Simulated scan of single mutants.
Amino acid sequence: MSMSISVAEKEYADLLQEQIRGASGMRLEKLREQSEGERMLLVDIFWPVRRSFKGITLEKEITTLSGVKAYVDAVDESFRFGLEAEGYVSHAENITRPRFDFEKQRVRSMGALQLRFVPFSYDEMNKKPDMCRRALYELYGRYGGNAGSDNYQKLNLYEREIIRYAIWLNRPIRMADLRECLGKSNDFSTKMIKRMVDKRLLHPTNADRQRHHEYVLDKDASKYLW
């Protein structure tokens, strides 16, 4: 897991620097002020679900219905998701009435631009990251429109469900996890593990042992879901 997180941190840093180089004005200022909330949203919540920042625009500039510029923390351009990290103090406790009104206008404007508003609170991401990842995964599953893709068709229902469950767990997957996920016998779960190892979708955490108890997803496994 530490390796995945370090990869996510590096990819996020690279993405941020790349977008800073291409930004100007207020967007550039906001990119330079990226907070722990935005980092947590991208690294701890988004990355384990998607394993890529392809198509992500940080501090996406939009024009509200009243003609005022506004910004969205991160937009997945491919799925039109507007992802937000919201701290309680800045978004609730200390918010002024004019700012509150502007926030509602901003959300309505996102709807007019066909951006689906997907907010996560700082406390949720910090204390319940698995719940946040599960919610995000379900949104991608609902709006992905993936059933006709070539990658999607290469796996059966059980294989895709194992990948989803492993992403949700965000740790090495064990036999007990598979039985719970699939609702099947130990023999069936063992067969599925062998099949997915043969397809290089799962890898034993310790390849030197003859008997394996934990497996990790291949870094490209999630592409078969979308």
Rank of each mutant, 00 (worst) to 15 (best):
S90A: 15
E59D: 03
V68E: 15
L115T: 06
G37C: 08
L65H: 13
R80F: 07
F117C: 14
G87W: 02
Y71T: 03
G82M: 00
Q105P: 00
S78T: 11
V107Q: 15
L42D: 05
F117P: 10
F117G: 07
I56Y: 02
A70Q: 04
Y122W: 15
V75R: 06
R116A: 11
R97C: 01
T64S: 14
N126Y: 12
N94C: 13
A23Q: 06
R116S: 09
D76R: 02
K69M: 09
L58A: 10
S90Q: 13
V49F: 01
E29V: 12
F120E: 10
E77F: 01
G55W: 01
L41K: 05
R99F: 09
G67D: 05
S121Q: 06
P48R: 00
G55Y: 02
G55L: 06
R32P: 09
A74G: 11
S66C: 05
K30M: 12
N126L: 14
T57L: 09
L41T: 13
L58W: 06
D44K: 13
D73S: 09
I56H: 00
A92W: 11
M26H: 12
G22I: 09
T96L: 10
P98V: 10
L31Q: 04
R50K: 15
P119F: 02
F102M: 15
G87P: 07
E59G: 05
E29H: 13
P48W: 00
P48M: 00
S78M: 12
V49W: 01
V107H: 06
S35A: 08
L58P: 14
F53H: 03
I56P: 02
F120T: 05
K128I: 02
T64H: 09
Y88C: 03
K69D: 13
D76K: 03
E103Y: 03
Y88E: 13
V75K: 03
K30H: 12
G87T: 05
I56N: 07
E61W: 00
N94L: 15
L31N: 03
Q114D: 15
K54W: 07
P98N: 07
K128G: 02
